[in-house]
Simulated scan of single mutants.
Amino acid sequence: MLERAQHENATEVTFVLPADSPSGDVSVVGDFNDWRPGAHPLAARGDGTRAVTVQMPAEQRVHFRYLAHGDYWFDEDGADGHDGQNGYVRT
């Protein structure tokens, strides 16, 4: 799930997953962090989910995927779209 907060020149996008699916560490990687695994790890929240918030420039199309333990790559079902290789979000 994606949560967004619009600001004047930026958009905060929060990437949210269930606490235990998939198990182990998960990070979100994409254009915004030069596809560096582990740069934006999801952390547990009190509501039983885990999440990370990333500030991005407004009015962009940003590609991303999740990377879980064991080199398991997966997509966000709630992304704004998919280009055949990655999901993307419009800020």
Results as ranks from 00 to 15, higher is better:
residue 3 E to I: 04
residue 3 E to L: 09
residue 53 T to A: 08
residue 63 H to L: 08
residue 10 A to P: 02
residue 6 Q to L: 12
residue 11 T to I: 08
residue 13 V to L: 00
residue 30 G to Y: 01
residue 34 D to L: 13
residue 33 N to R: 08
residue 38 G to T: 13
residue 71 D to K: 05
residue 20 D to N: 15
residue 5 A to Q: 14
residue 8 E to W: 08
residue 17 L to G: 09
residue 57 P to D: 11
residue 22 P to W: 06
residue 27 S to A: 13
residue 71 D to Y: 00
residue 50 R to I: 01
residue 81 G to L: 02
residue 84 G to L: 02
residue 18 P to L: 11
residue 4 R to E: 06
residue 37 P to K: 04
residue 15 F to W: 09
residue 38 G to S: 13
residue 82 H to E: 12
residue 43 A to E: 14
residue 41 P to S: 11
residue 71 D to S: 10
residue 35 W to S: 08
residue 4 R to V: 00
residue 55 Q to P: 04
residue 72 Y to G: 00
residue 42 L to M: 06
residue 11 T to V: 15
residue 75 D to G: 09
residue 81 G to P: 04
residue 74 F to E: 05
residue 70 G to M: 10
residue 41 P to H: 11
residue 72 Y to L: 11
residue 37 P to R: 07
residue 52 V to L: 00
residue 77 D to S: 10
residue 63 H to F: 05
residue 33 N to Q: 10
residue 82 H to S: 13
residue 67 L to A: 05
residue 80 D to Q: 05
residue 18 P to Q: 12
residue 22 P to M: 02
residue 1 M to W: 12
residue 11 T to A: 06
residue 28 V to L: 07
residue 36 R to D: 11
residue 56 M to H: 04
residue 14 T to F: 04
residue 91 T to N: 09
residue 12 E to W: 01
residue 29 V to H: 01
residue 22 P to V: 05
residue 5 A to H: 10
residue 90 R to K: 09
residue 10 A to W: 03
residue 49 T to W: 01
residue 82 H to F: 10
residue 15 F to H: 02
residue 60 Q to D: 08
residue 3 E to W: 03
residue 26 V to H: 03
residue 9 N to K: 08
residue 41 P to Q: 08
residue 70 G to D: 12
residue 69 H to E: 15
residue 37 P to Q: 12
residue 30 G to R: 00
residue 41 P to Y: 04
residue 4 R to D: 06
residue 23 S to D: 15
residue 20 D to W: 05
residue 28 V to A: 06
residue 41 P to L: 11
residue 48 G to W: 07
residue 15 F to N: 02
residue 8 E to T: 12
residue 39 A to M: 03
residue 21 S to T: 13
residue 82 H to T: 11
residue 2 L to Q: 07
residue 56 M to K: 09
residue 89 V to I: 13
residue 31 D to I: 03
residue 79 A to I: 06
residue 29 V to D: 03
residue 36 R to V: 15
residue 22 P to I: 10
residue 79 A to C: 12
residue 70 G to W: 09
residue 68 A to H: 00
residue 41 P to A: 13
residue 35 W to G: 07
residue 33 N to L: 09
residue 6 Q to D: 14
residue 69 H to R: 14
residue 54 V to T: 09
residue 62 V to L: 04
residue 19 A to M: 15
residue 83 D to L: 03
residue 34 D to Q: 15
residue 30 G to M: 07
residue 69 H to W: 06
residue 61 R to P: 01
residue 37 P to N: 13
residue 79 A to N: 07
residue 18 P to T: 10
residue 43 A to I: 11
residue 16 V to D: 02
residue 83 D to T: 08
residue 53 T to G: 05
residue 71 D to W: 02
residue 69 H to Y: 06
residue 21 S to I: 04
residue 45 R to A: 06
residue 53 T to C: 03
residue 79 A to L: 08
residue 47 D to R: 03
residue 70 G to P: 04
